[in-house]
Design a protein around this nucleic acid. Structure first.
Lengths: 295, 295
DNA sequence: ATGTTTACATGAAATATATCAATGTAATTA
DNA sequence: TAATTACATTGATATATTTCATGTAAACAT
């Protein structure tokens, strides 16, 4: 309990994230000297220095790095705890952290937008945070507690998480207008021919694409927009969800290439921790997500 | 963070466990009025009453009960967190909560006593708590974090826990001197005859004994000493570990009865959570337990 | 070198917070 | 009805925290 008194840890985390005491003033709403005191007190309690600072720059010590990671974790846990107890009042409160993958707004049946409408049309006290990351990072987030809910195509299921299928997404191979295959005849396109062209891949789809027998991907992206840019450049083939590619196909800037192994459907799930769904805000939001009907 | 300020939760938990404000004074080392203030502040922060109190008696409200459970949990988590960060100093610190089943001190190869000697012969700042409970409660404790280490015969293994075998214990059926079978000849004892006599069982051994074809147990105990008392009364047969029964067998107060299904060996394990072994105190103690060699 | 700026530390005063001691109140009990 | 118990309240006191003003040291510009 020693370390959580007087928001010592909040000050520490703010200082780390702001890269110094002076910047953290505004975020914490207290003076620089107060921050100085808090960090000093924290270091006295801990018995070691957490950061080097001064005109020579701000830097966490080795122990400070570990302390910072753990401090973030405990702060999140305490926030969730606060929210749980406050929700016993009847009003739903607290932080609600939701994770999604990128480029899903146009995905038919993706329930986020209607869920947000439903959730916030009821009076509540919830503070929402939406994070965009890869399915793997989202899974990590759920397990560590930095996320309450994630919406993404999860391939391997984890025991400690709960998954509910909500919709699916079709992926096809595309080339850009500038690409030499753009005007090729149907008979000029075969897996063999395609395998001679550079392909860009999303890092988290690489497992799926392993059996596609394409050359080593020349470019790896972690984001759909980046993939689209590479494809539109005409120098790469790439797999995109159809609902996303359609905007360029319709304007004549992309063309779908049929390929048996670079075409797939991924299932989207609402995922959350099995244990920690006690938070009303979490349960309500999941309910709001599923209201259109589970597939 | 609102709820953890000024030890509001410690005060609350102390009050609950002491059954009132006045008693909690001594435990918390603050005056009754200070406690009153803290509970008031907690209730203001929460927005609801956590307990009814006054001359008419102390009682948690429904919400108060939930709040109390969660408060205990978060306090333990914060304690563990404190200990983790303090251990980065180099000195091992914090609470170390160990669970065992009863009547194990005489079990040959049970590593607790030598481990305690080894652990405390090194200078440290650890606060030890030893809990005696059933294997099932110990398992629960490990999972919820109320225990760091447990030493017990675990039958089903849980994924989130780590088990290391340390020794084993032999169980046999016994009767007391006053029992009618005490002086019976060897040929007068068979499973059929035995099945006409009342047996007492430890509640957590009932799964093992299911195939023993004994009549429904007339008495259930959750503690070995209680089982011994029932056996010594002469009114019950019962299963005991041999190392424990031996004291009465040698003094002629108990007799071992051979029975194929009421004789078994249970394996003792050191169990701990896979994830949370980051605490040095926990790791060191496990090391101290295993120093005699793993079986 | 020298002065200036930046980033933090420090000390005294001011403010906020928590605690205590004393007393008040309401429900029991004698 | 008085005494007792268990807690609430109050105002004084103690403690803790923050601010403001100022100090210090490193980096940078001149």
């Amino acid at each position: 309990m020693k370390l959580l008194r007087n928001n010592l840890l909040e000050a520490f985390c703010a200082v780390v994230e702001c890269g110094g005491f002076s910047e953290a003033q505004f975020r914490l709403g207290i003076s620089q000297s107060a921050i100085s005191c808090r960090i000093r007190d924290l270091e006295i309690a801990l018995g070691y220095r957490v950061c080097e600072r001064g005109r020579s720059g701000f830097q966490l010590t080795e122990r400070g790095k570990i302390a910072y990671e753990k401090a973030c974790e405990i702060i999140r846990m305490v926030e969730d705890f606060d929210a749980e107890l406050l929700e016993l009042r009847g009003t739903i409160t607290g932080q609600l952290r939701i994770g999604i993958v990128d480029t899903v707004i146009s995905l038919p049946g993706f329930p986020l937008v209607p869920a947000l409408q439903r959730f916030f049309s009821k009076e509540n006290d919830v503070n929402l945070e939406i994070v965009v990351a890869s399915p793997n990072d989202l899974k990590e987030g759920l397990i560590t507690g930095s996320l309450h809910i994630a919406l993404a195509p999860f391939k391997r299921k984890r025991d400690e998480l709960e998954y509910i299928k909500v919709c699916s997404e079709n992926h096809f191979l595309y080339c850009g207008r500038e690409h030499e295959l753009f005007d090729a005849g149907k008979d000029e396109i075969s897996p063999e021919i395609l395998s001679n062209h550079a392909v860009c891949q999303r890092s988290y789809d690489m497992i799926v694409a392993r059996d596609a027998k394409t050359p080593e991907p020349k470019a790896i992206v972690t984001n759909m927009e980046a993939a689209a840019a590479l494809i539109l450049s005409g120098k790469f083939l790439g797999v995109l969800p159809d609902h996303y590619a359609t905007q360029w196909v319709e304007t004549g800037n992309m063309r779908l290439l049929e390929h048996p192994n670079l075409t797939w459907t991924s299932e989207f799930y609402v995922a959350s921790r099995k244990s920690q769904s006690h938070r009303q805000a979490v349960e309500w939001f999941i309910k709001a997500l599923l209201q259109d009907g589970v597939i």
